[in-house]
Nucleic acid binder design. Structure first.
Lengths: 211, 211
DNA sequence: AAACCCTTGTGCAAACAATCACATAATAAA
DNA sequence: TTTATTATGTGATTGTTTGCACAAGGGTTT
């Protein structure tokens, strides 16, 4: 792409803007100012404008941004103008909750394959439609089904091995729910969803507060 | 506590260090150098030392850090040397997965009350032992059970109202799983666990990569 | 007790990120 | 057509975070 040095925090905020705009669209709001959008997302108005300025001039001076148009542009930037095919590894409580989560589909993400090692689970059909494959089938299934993103919901102890499998099968991006830091080779990305780290943050602040 | 400005990223990393040290302790490793610890957590060695230096001198020059001792100190800093009482609001797929998640308990976090609005769910007993209360009971139950942390797993549309309820009941810290930005009054904290934002990050990077 | 490791703790510089403040441009009113 | 009004886009500024490089100091060996 053109100028590659976009702050990663900007990307995260674009995602928030996109969500806020989606909401505004529902409410039939046509035009929004950086002010209002910023407030909705809990950031500074100048930040909104600067974030957007990295990618172009989407607003009209003296007016604001056209909700529909801006949403379209942001989605294009983030790559949300297409569907993303995901594989889930690990059908525990969390895994089940994830495949059942309808928010993903709404956003263009769908689980097209799910894997586990438990023989009691393999072969079963989930309410959401997917049949559970054994991990051994991962390499071929991932290739056949053209998976874009791997989602790890295994126990921590198996997360790194799972990541390696996914990568060897050609997957470039991983969403990791296991509470470990996964080592990735150059050029591959992992994003961690880490409940306990967030809780620890809360615990820390509560502890400070009290002193 | 000393009011020196601790970067919030430092707190997040302390949480990672704590987890890594816990693992090392299991493996009966007694001493660890900032080098190794950094590698395990995917950060710079100087960063580890600097993070720790905010809170004291825990290492021995020429040697490293005593795993057990450092873990103890970090846990004390984060406030993990006690139990934290949590309330969960919203018993959907995700909520169920969260109460069943044994990692929380291991870390000292426990769900001592769960709430929902669905009359079909209220009164039922969960496998993990909690009885589901109706939301109307939230104010009194939260006070009676001395809840420290509120966890929101409701649909996005109800998240803000839920947060307000929790705050009015005296809760200072919220972990939010709903995909909205929750507005909090001064002095209260919210941490967001946001799957789709993370996925959007992956989608963005995959999209860039391809160009 | 001196010389030699080794790894911590930290001053400083560089990179990165957020915010301010205003010139700029579009629209509407006079 | 001119003026007033409004909100964007952005250069300048301030603030924060990271990483380097090395002095400081504990441990070990001779």
């Amino acid at each position: 792409m053109k100028f590659s040095k976009i702050p990663s925090a900007t990307i995260t905020r674009l995602s928030l803007y996109s969500r806020a705009l989606e909401e505004l669209l529902q409410e039939h709001v046509n035009i929004i100012a950086s002010d209002k959008l910023a407030q909705k997302c809990g950031v500074n108005p100048a930040q909104v404008r600067k974030d957007l300025a990295y990618f172009g001039e989407f607003g009209v001076r003296g007016v604001g941004y056209f909700v529909k148009e801006l949403l379209f542009e942001i989605k294009k930037i983030l790559g949300l103008n297409r569907r993303w095919r995901m594989a889930l590894v690990g059908i525990g409580n969390l895994g089940l909750a994830l495949v059942a989560h309808d928010n993903f589909v709404k956003q263009g993400y769908e689980f097209v394959a799910v894997f586990d090692v438990d023989p009691k689970k393999v072969g079963r059909r989930l309410p959401s439609g997917q049949t559970i494959y054994h991990m051994d089938e991962l390499p071929t299934v991932v290739k056949d089904k053209k998976i874009d993103i791997g989602v790890i919901a295994t126990p921590a102890s198996q997360a790194q091995a799972t990541a390696r499998l996914l990568i060897e099968a050609g997957i470039k991006a991983i969403l990791n729910f296991a509470p470990v830091q996964i080592q990735m080779p150059e050029g591959y990305i992992v994003e961690n969803v880490d409940f306990t780290v967030k809780l620890d943050n809360l615990a820390y602040h509560l502890t400070m507060e009290a002193v």
